[in-house]
């Protein structure tokens, strides 16, 4: 399973749900599956995709909030697993596209290529809904379960790097304003109103 293949399955299973994508190739692949207003593409803040997802899940408890993180990115912010394990937002689904390398920067190996186990890290932080998957059909079944079974979920999807050829929109304020409108909370200043 390539990351693009996994991302297609996530996009299909989570149509209508907000998806926060980690910077670089995870965001590029999400865009490649077909752009949606419900996608929040990050262009920086490496490591913070799961934290952004946590805040969003707290603010919008009735929406299933999906995060597509990378192994290198999550390794940069392992504390996020501790906070998620403490707060236990039922509606948060963190999917780690684990290609065991820093795909956006030239393919240097990460610690998950040498035994670091991000699912075990999540469990150690008190997150109980965790799985590691390798196949597409397996990922589909799991994504279906996240609709009905309480999270927080941490799903480690073992993927191969997929060398994206497209990039998402690059205007950060546009990404934000479009996303917030899609969340039903259009940003103040974008709507007009009484003088």
């Amino acid at each position: 399973m390539t990351r693009l293949d996994a991302t297609r399955r996530i996009a299909a299973a989570c149509a209508g749900d907000p998806i926060v994508a980690s910077l670089g190739h995870p965001a590029y692949d999400l865009f490649a599956t077909g752009d949606r207003d419900t996608y929040f593409y990050t262009w920086g803040s490496m490591g913070l995709a799961s934290s952004i997802g946590l805040g969003l899940a707290m603010a919008q408890p009735h929406k299933r909030v999906v995060v597509i993180d990378g192994d290198g990115s999550l390794l940069m912010n392992l504390g996020s697993l501790a906070t998620i394990g403490w707060l236990k937002p039922r509606n948060l689904v963190v999917i780690v596209a684990d290609n065991r390398l820093y795909g956006t920067t030239g393919g240097q190996e990460t610690a998950t290529a040498h035994g670091a186990d991000l699912e075990a890290a999540a469990r150690a932080m008190g997150i109980t809904a965790t799985e590691t998957v390798r196949g597409g059909a397996e990922l589909d079944l799991l994504l279906a379960r996240t609709k009905d079974e309480a999270g927080p979920w941490v799903i480690v999807a073992k993927v191969e790097e997929s060398a994206p050829t497209v990039k998402p929109p690059q205007d950060c304020v546009f990404i934000k304003q479009r996303f917030m409108a899609a969340m039903g909370v259009p940003e103040g200043g974008t709507q007009g109103g009484p003088a």
Binding site: V20, F40, S45, G47, L48, A49, S50, S51, I52, G53, L54, G55, L56, A57, M58, A59, Q60, N77, G79, S80, A82, T83, L87, K176, F179, M180, M183, G184, V185
Partner: peptide, 23 residues
Amino acid sequence: QTTIATREEEAFGIAAGLYLGGK
């Protein structure tokens, strides 16, 4: 509602998500 973060940059990430959700 108060939320403790493990590190300050994580706090800014959580705060960004809260704002994106209308808070």
